[in-house]
Design a binder for these strands. Structure first.
Lengths: 80, 80, 80, 80
DNA sequence: ACGTTTGCGCTTTAGC
DNA sequence: GCTAAAGCGCAAACGT
């Protein structure tokens, strides 16, 4: 078997792994859509819910940055 | 327990389900990044690989659209 | 005349140019709507027409992507 | 010349008119991108400018609605 | 590391 | 009113 073929097979495998993962990602995205739809059928406003999710994510992110900063200080000061 | 509380609990559950799914989606996206990185370390060009994946997806999509259009024609013309 | 005023004038001009262009764009979009409406009054199915336009655009795009990918290969392989 | 051919020609003309208009629309959109780019190279923040354009559009829209309401009242009250 | 550019997701809008 | 598609904004990714 020539190297070219081996390389082609390896490349093909990488591509297929990526495509498989992208399908999974698509599936999760569809699940998220379904939850929003279910929420809507229960009387909740989708746009507002998306805003809530976005806001919570930002808050988590902000909190993590604050924690990282504290950790940096802790190490810099040689604290356990 | 008041209705308001029940509703709040239900909303919270929906939000948490969405956040859980978004974490999963993020995980898959990270996996995809890893595969591209692994491919790169095996000598493949990331940009080219992304183009290949994108092209394959587009071709599938174009084919599906073409099929749907033919079906539309078929129905419009009253063919079985 | 202070620099602040000059800057404000320049910014205002940029904003107005954008707004003018967006009006033009809106006008074109309205023209497109009109053509679809005229087509419909001539007995053509709007949905099918939109699908045709979309499909033709996708095919052109797919072709261009394929060409670009070939070019990428060519360069990667050091071919003239 | 058969009716089928005439119809096909007419349809083709409609499609081509639409495609021509969509190209024009694309051109305008590109021009808008250029103005934002030029603004950026002059030191203005693109994101902020987009927010300004959006806000002004909303205000114009709000103003128009208010005017329309006033006009409705005027007519309802038989005022000149 | 930064700035640019491209792809992806969301929002909004149009059609049924 | 709801579904689907087009347009827009953002964010990651590439190149410098």
């Amino acid at each position: 078997m020539a190297d070219g073929t081996v390389a082609a097979d390896q490349l093909r495998l990488f591509i297929e792994r990526i495509e498989r993962l992208e399908e999974e990602k698509k599936g999760i995205a569809d699940d998220i859509r379904d939850v929003y739809a279910e929420s809507k059928s229960n009387g909740y406003d989708t746009k507002t819910m998306r805003a809530m999710v976005r806001l919570r994510k930002m808050e988590i992110h902000t909190r993590q940055e604050a924690d990282a900063l504290l950790e940096t200080y802790r190490i810099a000061l040689g604290l356990s």
